[in-house]
Amino acid sequence: MNKENNIYTVLFACLMVVVVGSILAYLASALSGKIKENERFEKQQNILYAMGVNENEGEGSVNFVPTDVVEEEFSTYITEQLIIEGDQITKDDQAYMIDLKKELDKLKDGATPKLPVFIGNKDGQTYYIVPMYGKGLWDAIWGFMALDKNMVVQGVYFDHKAETPGLGANIKQRYFMDDFTGESILNGSNYTGIKVVKGNNDPVNEIKDDNEVDALAGATITGNGVSAMIAKTVNLYKDYFETLRNQG
């Protein structure tokens, strides 16, 4: 058969699309259950990580609770899951499965987003954990921030889809995330969030009352993205935080 003939070319293209399409479709449906479960475990791991339930050893490691026990640990440490929708606060133990990106998109249409809050309890201390979602240099960045009642950060977890390895991708390194612990999202009584700044003369982050942490070299835009993400989150949850503080 003549390979250069148009009919052959079109037939070849059609056949190729059908074959490749079916392979990928089969694979996606066969694996989707397993992939969804992995994603669910990951969310639970991340939330627990932010409140300090993790298996970190030594200085540099970021180790989550292993997947085979994460479900159990999650129900032990997370005592309550709330959804804030406008003025209404409801309990929902599936709140962690909310897709924050979709909820934030609702804001653009003027609708009220559903904002989850996770209340954790470890060694008698209560943690209020909020999810975050924002933009880095290349793609999405997200994370979780655990606060105490006085709006002091007790731990954060950041992650990213496609930041530059070695530069922006380092937002998920211990030395960056640990800097946030102890910083307050309050400046006086204003909800200012925490800024990632270059050259704040505080590379080891000893000053905890300046609402600033030291930036990563070579990752200015990712750092700005983190600042913006925290500011946006703090602004969204402001009313809820305010009621927490007034409870005394």
């Binding site: 694979l27 694996l31 992939i35 992995n38």
Partner: peptide, 12 residues
Amino acid sequence: TLVIIVDQVLKA
């Protein structure tokens, strides 16, 4: 296709 297959299998 190769890259997506590898990506999906690793994800699972």
